[in-house]
């Protein structure tokens, strides 16, 4: 069976594309799929660091495309016991070192071997973006509930649609439930109304995400963390499972704690 190539993009930098790629890749691999993540942020590679594979890099995506090495040589196996591989970006080159067509060919080759090919897209809408999106047949947009990130996401969705990548899906990252409740942060409905695309996941702001990235172990490995759970659920949804979005209500107040205690409505997450 041919694999699915999905690009993870955002327009704005620093909203969590790379973190989302690492976690989604790991999440899908945990579900038993053969997954490869490709870092196309040439010159500013990060994905290897977040996955804790920095020390194992010998060859990179530019080497493969230029034919300096075989594809199998550039595939770095994950530290954990999953069918998860990384093709890192080159650090000493720039975005213009590859052409969209070359990446498309590479992904076509990867699709033969893997169930999922996830492309980590660089920030911006220039050459790197064009390279990354050309190869994909599906797109996931990462945004945070901030106007600047949403504006960029809107622009990117427009560009994707004009490039023929219709119906991209959205991950809203770094939601602070307390701020949403106070009305200081946009909620899922606001973002959905602005961008008019399907939301595939809500990820709460979680310190564990930062800790996990620093350790080089994606947060999905920590099933107790709220962000880890969120990414697992997103992986399940990408995989075609129909599970409701999390309701990111802050768990405060005596009543809800009491309810938790005695087990009425005893689920942490109600249906969104």
């Amino acid at each position: 069976m041919k694999g699915r190539t999905i690009v993870i993009t955002s327009g704005k930098g620093g909203v969590g594309k790379t973190t989302a790629t690492a976690n989604l890749g790991t999440g899908l691999a945990m579900r038993g799929h053969r997954v490869v993540v490709v870092d196309t942020d040439i010159g500013l590679r990060n994905l290897d660091v977040i996955m804790g594979l920095e020390n194992r890099i010998v060859y990179d995506v530019v080497n493969v495309i230029e034919g300096t090495c075989k594809l199998s040589q550039a595939l770095i196996g994950d530290k954990h016991d999953f069918e998860l591989y990384l093709i890192p970006a080159a650090q000493t080159r720039d975005k213009n070192s590859i052409e969209p067509e070359q990446l498309r060919e590479l992904c076509a080759e990867l699709e033969e071997q893997f169930d999922y090919v996830l492309i980590d897209c660089p920030a911006g809408i220039e050459q790197g973006f064009k390279n990354a999106t050309a190869a994909a047949k599906e797109a996931i947009i990462v945004t945070t509930p901030e106007v600047s990130a949403i504006r960029d996401a809107d622009r990117v969705i427009g560009l994707l649609e004009s490039a023929g990548l219709h119906r991209p899906r959205l991950i809203i990252n770094r939601i602070a439930p307390e701020m949403v409740k106070r009305g200081d942060m946009m909620d899922q409905k606001d973002v959905e109304a602005l961008l008019a695309v399907e939301v595939i996941g809500l990820v709460p702001a979680d310190e564990n995400t930062v800790v996990a990235a620093n350790r080089g172990v994606p947060v999905v490995h920590n099933p107790k963390s709220s962000a880890g759970q969120a990414f697992l659920r997103i992986a399940a949804r990408v995989d075609g499972e129909d599970i409701p979005l999390m309701d990111l209500e802050p768990k405060t107040g005596l009543i809800s704690r009491f309810k938790d205690l005695v087990g009425i409505g005893g689920r942490t997450y109600s249906h969104a």
Binding site: R151, D154, R155, G158, E161
Partner: peptide, 8 residues
């Protein structure tokens, strides 16, 4: 017929 987005 669909949302007219930033940059269009």
């Amino acid at each position: 017929k669909s949302t007219f987005r930033s940059g269009e």
